[in-house]
């Protein structure tokens, strides 16, 4: 049904988006400001980006952030996919409902509490805070996002495909690798991208679990901003917005187009 685009709709849309994106747009614009004073426009320049590349502390933090994001999202993808598979396909086992409820708990848990409890855990087991602890922490909270994405895909596709694979002589592992995984691959990839951007974004949990030698970019930015906003920070933030936007858009594109197409093909393939 096509309805006329009323003034009311147009206004709501504009206001809503302005509300969401205005602050970011201003930040991006000011990252190209030639002046050192953040609030005074003095012409276009990319010099702060160059400046950024010469700042050792920021580069170190960027490297740590990237490492943490890649490693934690990869581990989270493996664990999250396994969890989703067991919860969707494992049949009935004792405590299944409890498990499937519990896996989503970190989605609604306040980050401060997750961070604090992880911190207490690391202290209790005597693990020195550093890259490893951030990776562990990020894996913990992004795993549930992966498993949500993957399980929605698993629910959608026909169980009998896996049965057919078993019937034709696959071991359960072989059936998973040669039938299930190719079918859910887009969901797994988009889960990975989601976990990656979540890790890149995170400030609260990282600040609980990072050590002195391992600061991530969000922590760096946050502490720098407390001393005053600099155009360099604006430039850095712009880059991060760019990366996160690419990640999120890629994830949603994959799930929208690839998964939709595969689901359609599957349904077509079952039709009689």
């Amino acid at each position: 049904m096509i309805r006329r685009f009323s003034w009311f709709n147009a206004t709501s849309l504009t206001l809503g988006f302005a509300f969401l994106y205005m602050p970011m747009i201003i930040l991006v614009i000011y990252s190209f400001n030639a002046s050192k004073l953040v609030t005074v426009w003095a012409g276009f320049s990319t010099k702060w980006y160059g400046e950024l590349l010469r700042n050792e502390a920021f580069l170190d933090a960027a490297w740590v952030t990237l490492k943490v994001a890649v490693i934690s999202s990869s581990i989270a993808t493996v664990l999250g996919t396994m969890a989703a598979y067991v919860l969707v396909r494992g049949g009935r086992f004792a405590g299944r409902t409890l498990f499937s409820g519990m896996i989503y708990a970190p989605l609604v848990m306040p980050e401060v509490i997750t961070g604090l409890s992880l911190l207490l855990l690391f202290i209790a087991v005597g693990l020195d805070r550093g890259v490893i602890t951030i990776v562990l922490a990020h894996t913990t909270f992004s795993m549930c996002y992966v498993s949500v994405v993957v399980s929605s895909r698993l629910v959608a596709f026909d169980r009998s495909l896996e049965e057919a694979a078993l019937d034709l002589g696959c071991t359960p592992f072989d059936a998973f690798m040669s039938v299930t995984l190719p079918m859910i691959a887009p969901a797994v990839i988009s889960g990975w991208l989601l976990a990656f951007t979540l890790s890149l974004d995170d400030l609260v949990i990282a600040s609980f679990t990072s050590g002195p030698s391992s600061t991530t970019l969000p922590i760096k930015i946050f502490s720098a901003v407390r001393l005053g906003v600099s155009p360099e920070i604006n430039a850095l933030s712009t880059i991060m917005i760019g990366i996160v936007a690419v990640g999120v858009i890629a994830a949603s594109l994959i799930s929208k187009t690839r998964i939709a197409r595969m689901t359609r093909d599957e349904q077509a393939a079952q039709q009689q």
């Binding site: 049965e163 019937d167 034709l168 393939a269």
Partner: peptide, 20 residues
């Protein structure tokens, strides 16, 4: 005996062809 070890093959009512 698990399905993959049975000397039995089945043609599914829904065909269950591998779409990929």
């Amino acid at each position: 005996v698990p399905p993959n070890k049975r000397p039995v093959n089945m043609m599914f009512q829904s065909y269950a062809l591998f779409p990929h």
